[in-house]
């Protein structure tokens, strides 16, 4: 009797696993921290896939199409463990470790994104909000009228002795084009104001300033340490009027959108 029940249950493992995965995908796209894995523009794709998966999984749970397979079942268990780890179980353990800044624990439910104002005011001066990816693209194109415009840009700080000596740090964020695994850290150098102490390494800051070309002789490649490939604008830096340390909202650690003109994605 028990053996029969076990066999019946085992033969439905595939269907049940598919239903569980469909549920997880549906939850991520509607109420969960989808942004930690994929660019939110793919939510409709994921939701559609979850629906199709649920239909196929339901069918497989009722009428199994293959025999139970140990290897496949182990894969389901591994995937379940991955979901547990990524969804916070393990982050609690590693929270005190000197972690990669992109390793963020999501706040759930994801807070509503506040609209970005057209200008951010700092010390009585208006700045155009822009993200590091968009500013990186402007910097990469070389001197243009945009170099005279004041920008406000936020991101993580990367410091090194070499950068410190030059009175600079790198400001960067993770650009997620499709999924977290193809994320690239994108940023640019920031020259901090002489009258201000440099921010801590890996701090989350907003820098206010204007772009300035870097002389040919002073151009150097900067790689951001960590798990991500990185792209730091080589030919221009942001000469900061002010650098302001802020509290990080985990949802803002990644960039998902780039615009060529105002209003920028910030």
């Amino acid at each position: 009797m028990i053996q029969t029940t076990f066999r019946r249950l085992a033969s439905r493992t595939d269907g049940l696993a598919m239903l569980l995965l469909a549920g997880f995908m549906g939850w991520l796209a509607t109420a969960g921290n989808y942004w930690m894995y994929l660019n939110p523009k793919f939510k409709p794709v994921t939701l559609t896939a979850a629906l199709v998966l649920a239909v196929l999984g339901g069918y497989a749970a009722i009428r199994p199409v293959t025999r139970p397979n140990l290897g496949r079942s182990l894969c389901y268990l591994v995937l379940l463990a991955m979901a547990g780890l990524a969804e916070g179980g393990f982050q609690a353990l590693s929270a005190n470790i000197d972690s990669d800044p992109f390793d963020v624990a999501a706040t759930l439910p994801t807070p509503e994104k506040a609209p970005t104002p057209a200008r951010l005011t700092q010390n009585g001066k208006d700045y155009i909000p822009i993200n590091t990816g968009e500013l990186h693209d402007i910097a990469a194109k070389g001197p243009s009228p945009s170099f005279d415009r004041p920008f406000a840009v936020r991101g993580f700080v990367h410091r090194s002795p070499e950068l410190d000596a030059a009175g600079q740090f790198v400001l960067y964020r993770l650009a997620v084009w499709c999924c977290f695994a193809d994320g690239t850290a994108v940023g640019l150098r920031v020259a901090f104001p002489p009258d201000q102490a440099p921010p801590d390494d890996k701090a989350w800051v907003t820098a206010y300033g204007t772009l300035r070309p870097i002389p040919e002789a002073a151009r150097k490649d900067v790689a951001i340490p960590g798990i991500s490939f990185s792209s730091v604008a080589p030919a221009a830096l942001l000469a900061a009027d002010t650098v302001e340390t802020k509290e990080l909202n985990p949802e803002e650690a990644y960039m998902f959108e780039w615009r060529q003109e105002e209003p920028y994605a910030f």
Partner: peptide, 14 residues
């Protein structure tokens, strides 16, 4: 390990 899990899941979900 949590970055590994996050990357694995993101590839699978993608």
């Amino acid at each position: 390990l949590d970055l590994f899990a996050q990357a694995t899941l993101s590839i699978v979900l993608e």
